[in-house]
Structure formats: C-alpha cells, structure tokens
C-alpha cells in the first residue's frame, strides 16, 4: 500500500531541548499506524509537527505533497483531522456547535445536517446531548465528541493523540471499536499515538516504538506484540 503520510528526519526542539531527533515513519493509505512510547518520548510533538503546530526541520509528505512549514489551518484543509491530547473541546459551545466547527474547513458545507446525523450514529450519546453545553459532558463523552468533530471534516487522515487518557476501560474499548469501524467503513487512514501499548497494538496494523525523540523499532503490530523487549517494557507480562 502506498504511504499517505511519509515523514523523514523530523527534528524539533523546545528551547534548548531537542525533543525530536530525526524521526522517520510512514502511514499507509487505509491503514491504522500507531506510535508507542513512554511519556516524554516525543509522540505528541510528532503529531503536532504533522499539523504544523510546532516548528520543525525535516520532510513531511502527505498525499505526495510536501506540507512541512504550512500553517495548521492549511494542513487541515488537505483533509488531516487532529484529535488533540486533552480533547480540545469548545467547552462553552453546544455539542452541535462543536460538530459544526469540525466541518468548517470543508469546501462543501452542504449535507452538514446529514453528516451530524452520521457521526452521531457512531456515538449515539452525542445525539442525545446535541443541545447541551459541551463542557458539561463527561470525559468519555468529550473524547467521543472530539473524534466526532474530527470526522465532520470527512478527513483522509485522522491523527489521534492518547484517546484513552483518563477514561474508564469500558469507554476506551468502545472508542477503539468505533475507530476501527471508521477506518474500515470510511477508508480513513489513522495515526494513533498511545501509551496503552496493548490496546494500540490490538487496533493497529503497523506500529513504531519511539524512545527519547527517535524511532527505535518498527514492524507489523503482530511482530511488535511478539517482541520480548516490548512485551516486558510496554505490555507488562
């Protein structure tokens, strides 16, 4: 499968600290790729770099086009939806307004109502709370809203930053199940950043392991699951 996203030698720094030291990876069209790694390895920075939210050196190609250095708003317009760490909810707006904002960058704002119904189909709880202020939703519901908002873009590439963070296991399982459905039914390619390695490897078909700003291992999710080092350090058995 061709790579939808290809990143080469990505470097980024916060002040004097280098957080990305030559990161290279690919996301296959139609696939689910995950980046595993401990806290502070640079996973979130990598996702933010793809969206032009941090200054970087190196190459980022999306759909054959170089996109490094582009403004976040322009990357989004190419069909890259980013569900940020901490969910990025517009807490004072209603659920429906949050969803409408997700479709803001789309060229054809027609079918907006149909699309809201479509994403609410994945997350029925959002349909019940359409008129509710988003800040009053629970953490799990806000995570669902964040994914639903990203889907309103009709993206080709979905970037997910720690969607399991702070959520109850049942809720996490539900969200991961829906991400798989979205990937399969809507042909959305997914790049998932996750600390919960066993969950991520269960969902992804390709995986990278990141340590202190660089990729140290990559392979199919099945291969990484069998790897002794990963099993001991990240899966815990």
């Amino acid at each position: 499968m061709a790579a939808l996203l290809a990143v080469r030698n990505l470097e980024a720094r916060y002040g004097d600290t280098k957080v990305l030291r030559g990161v290279s990876f690919e996301v296959a069209e139609g696939g689910i790729t995950t980046i595993l790694g401990a806290n502070g390895a640079g996973k979130t920075t990598t996702l933010r770099a793809v969206c032009g939210m941090v200054k970087t050196a190196g190459q980022i190609s999306y759909d054959g086009r170089r996109i490094e250095g582009r403004a976040t708003e322009d990357v989004v317009r190419l069909g890259v939806a980013h569900v940020p760490e901490g969910r990025g909810t517009f807490v004072q707006l209603t659920v429906e307004e949050n969803l409408r904002l997700g479709a803001y960058a789309r060229r054809d704002p027609r079918h907006l109502g149909a699309d809201i119904d479509r994403v609410c189909g994945y997350f029925p709880v959002l349909a019940e709370r359409r008129r509710q202020i988003a800040g009053t939703l629970s953490g799990g519901e806000q995570q669902m809203l964040a994914v639903a908002r990203a889907l309103m873009l009709r993206p080709r590439l979905l970037l997910l930053d720690e969607p399991s963070l702070g959520l109850a296991p049942l809720v996490v399982r539900e969200i991961f199940r829906i991400i798989r459905t979205i990937n399969r039914d809507e042909r959305v390619s997914v790049l998932l950043v996750e600390q919960n390695a066993s969950l991520a490897l269960g969902l992804a078909d390709h995986a990278y392991l990141m340590e202190t700003g660089t990729m140290v291992m990559s392979g199919s999710a099945a291969e990484l699951r069998q790897n002794d080092g990963i099993r001991r350090a990240y899966l815990g058995y």
Binding site: C51, M53, A71, T72, E73, V76, R77, A81, H82, P84, G88, T89, F90, V91, Q92, L93, E97, R100, L101, G102, Y104, A105, P109, R149, L153
Partner: peptide, 23 residues
C-alpha cells in the same frame, strides 16, 4: 451564522479552532 460561530470558537479556544481550519 457559521462565521459568527467560528469567531466565538476562535475567542474561546484558538488552538482547537486552528485544528478546525479556522484562521
């Protein structure tokens, strides 16, 4: 209006707004 909504969004949460493609 959509523009009005985008302006409210931009005032509340600039980072998320950019991720929605709002200038």
């Amino acid at each position: 209006t959509t523009l009005g909504l985008a302006m409210r969004a931009a005032a509340q949460n600039p980072v998320s707004s950019r991720l929605c493609g709002i200038r």
